[in-house]
């Protein structure tokens, strides 16, 4: 069994430092990894990133993050990433990492994602250059997320994004802003690989649980949604299935 803790949209600045820490100190007892689903800062400044590093650095478990739209606001995503990585936090963007947990390989593919909307109500690669640039951004990110997911050699696969891959977890948000909260292209990428869990944030007024058309569990871990320092998911069935499969092969 692998225990995945996750939270997004913590929006840390100096006024928040210390709020999460008591709960984070307990992570080693209940989780094997912590995923941060973007919007770690308020404005994406280096000063705010240092606050994130203070709050989420030096934890008893590996921390893997993607950035969110807030983390891009000051046009310094590289600098923000560098501060986080200096604190030992792995930051993914169209990339992946594999952690070994008790002999099991946990693969995590991460990308910020982008908007565009969902089937039947989505943006298309058509019209003005600005509209085409918008949806092409999402297409590019979704393609590289899918490629990363399919390329990771692991036993359990998790997708980490900031934007939502399904509309299910947006329930509670105004319908008018769905196209700015996620895209079905991310869900399609997640379904292109044997993903066990997809975690995202961004939708503060959304709901926790959803599922992709391909049957992958989706969890919105935005802090205002989960209302706790992090949620913890136990991924076990995939490993048991794999073990049974391995046993069958040996016979």
């Amino acid at each position: 069994m692998i225990r995945v803790a996750a939270v997004g949209d913590v929006h840390v600045d100096a006024d928040v430092v210390g709020r999460y820490r008591p709960a984070l100190e307990q992570l080693g007892d209940c989780a094997d990894v912590l995923l941060l689903a973007g919007d770690l800062t308020r404005h994406g400044t280096v000063a705010e990133a240092k606050c994130v590093a203070t709050e989420f650095g030096g934890l008893p478990v590996p921390v893997v993050a993607v950035l969110g739209n807030h983390d891009y606001h000051s046009d310094q995503p590289a600098e923000v990433t560098a501060v986080l990585e200096d604190a030992g936090i792995t930051v993914l963007e169209c990339s992946g990492t594999v952690l070994t947990v008790g002999g099991t390989r946990l693969g995590i593919a991460g990308a910020k994602g982008f908007g565009g909307g969902f089937a039947g109500r989505c943006a298309s690669d058509f019209g003005e250059p600005e509209t085409k640039a918008f949806i092409r951004t999402t297409q590019r990110i979704a393609e590289c997320l899918g490629t990363t997911l399919r390329s990771l050699e692991c036993d359990v696969l998790v997708a980490l994004t900031h934007y939502a891959p399904v509309p299910d977890t947006l329930a509670g948000e105004p319908l008018e802003i769905y196209p700015f909260l996620g895209s079905y292209l991310l869900g399609q990428a997640i379904d292109s690989a044997p993903t066990a869990l997809a975690v995202h944030g961004h939708a503060h007024a959304g709901t926790e649980r959803g599922i992709t058309p391909g049957g992958v569990r989706v969890r919105n871990v935005a802090h205002p949604v989960i209302k706790q320092a992090y949620s913890v998911f136990h991924l076990g069935e995939q490993l048991e299935t794999k073990a049974l499969s391995a046993t069958g092969s040996a016979r």
């Binding site: 709960a23 209940c30 706790q228 320092a229």
Partner: peptide, 14 residues
């Protein structure tokens, strides 16, 4: 103010 305490339960994804 959003609560930031440790969770008391986990979710089994089976």
């Amino acid at each position: 103010i959003i609560r930031a305490g440790a969770p008391t339960e986990h979710e089994e994804l089976t």
